[in-house]
């Protein structure tokens, strides 16, 4: 039992870091990035390539991957997303969904569909926590996710640039009147959003298989977490993700591992009936 709860907790922490990025983009721009975890897949491949090419351990390539994903985020915003920000919902949704198809087949094309794994990173072996035994990679990933999640929370809630982001989220019409460059803020939201999901990818690469469709499940988990936690809320996204980690671990144990996502997504649909605005959201 302890084993289940603790592994659920650590899985949830990593989901949290993925969800935070999604939540920021959603909150600031009022836009859902359906390709979010496919950027994570990209980050996982970057980590893998750095490891297999230069021999750099995932823990050391973490800052490089974060920087790379930040730049990719800003570029994607400047080249593609900027054109659809004011568009219809159909346009926004299809645009990021098109990226899903593009990124997955790009990975398939460049790196084939084979499952990759980083063998013997520094964070390998197992750790005991209470009576539970976890892989060291998982523990490092969970703790680092919380640390990075906290850093993002700090940037958004405690710095001037974070306040500017929040002001843009609240009202993109009046933010420019306060001297905020909305365009820059949107680019920053994409940068931070992808940087945090990139960090999650680099951390996951320590112990998770890497393949072109790896993002699919994470994407749904993150979307569910953000809708539960209320969009735009960093804290809510983290908390909802940890909850999802628990639910997933428990239902995997009590029902059947294959059905754990059925339970998670089913609960999400049920929640839409009851409290569509999420736990921490103010409006739907």
């Amino acid at each position: 039992m302890e084993q289940i709860l603790i592994s659920g907790l650590f899985a949830g922490m990593v989901y949290g870091l993925i969800s935070i990025g999604l939540s920021i983009i959603w909150g600031v721009m009022d836009m859902v990035n359906f390709a979010h975890s496919d950027f994570m897949m990209l980050a996982m491949y970057f980590t893998f390539l750095l490891f297999s090419g230069v021999g750099l351990d995932p823990l050391f390539s973490l800052p490089l991957v974060i920087t790379a994903l930040f730049i990719i985020g800003v570029l994607i915003y400047a080249v593609v997303i900027r054109k659809v920000v004011g568009g219809e919902l159909v346009q926004q949704t299809l645009c990021t969904f098109g990226m899903v198809v593009f990124l997955q087949s790009l990975a398939q094309f460049l790196w084939t569909g084979n499952f990759r794994m980083i063998t013997n990173p520094i964070a390998s072996g197992s750790v005991r926590i209470l009576s539970a035994s976890l892989s060291r990679g998982q523990v490092v990933a969970g703790l680092a996710s919380v640390a990075i999640g906290f850093a993002v929370w700090w940037i958004i809630n405690k710095t001037r640039i974070g306040w500017a982001l929040m002001a843009t989220a609240q009202n993109r019409m009046s933010a420019p009147l306060m001297g905020i460059n909305v365009n820059k803020m949107f680019a920053l939201a994409w940068g931070i959003g992808l940087a945090s999901v990139g960090a999650a990818g680099a951390l996951l690469a320590n112990f998770y298989y890497i393949y072109p469709q790896v993002g699919a499940t994470f994407q749904l988990l993150a979307l569910v977490a953000v809708s539960m936690g209320g969009f735009g809320s960093v804290f809510g996204a983290m908390l909802a993700s940890i909850l999802i980690g628990f639910i997933e671990a428990l239902s995997g144990y009590f029902i059947e591992p294959a059905f754990k996502y059925v339970v998670v997504f089913g609960l999400y649909l049920l929640m839409m009936f009851v409290r569509p605005q999420g736990f921490f959201g103010t409006h739907a």
């Binding site: 859902v32 359906f34 919902l89 159909v90 949704t93 699919a216 499940t217 994407q219 749904l220 979307l223 569910v224 809708s227 294959a258 059905f259 996502y261 059925v262 997504f265 089913g266 999400y268 649909l269 839409m272 009936f273 569509p276 739907a284």
Partner: peptide, 24 residues
């Protein structure tokens, strides 16, 4: 439930449902 909400919730719900259906 979905049509009371904004369109994006519907999009997410359909994405989740196809996954559930596939697994089941």
């Amino acid at each position: 439930p979905c049509f009371r909400l904004g369109g994006r919730y519907f999009a997410i719900a359909t994405m989740a449902i196809v996954q559930i259906a596939y697994i089941v």
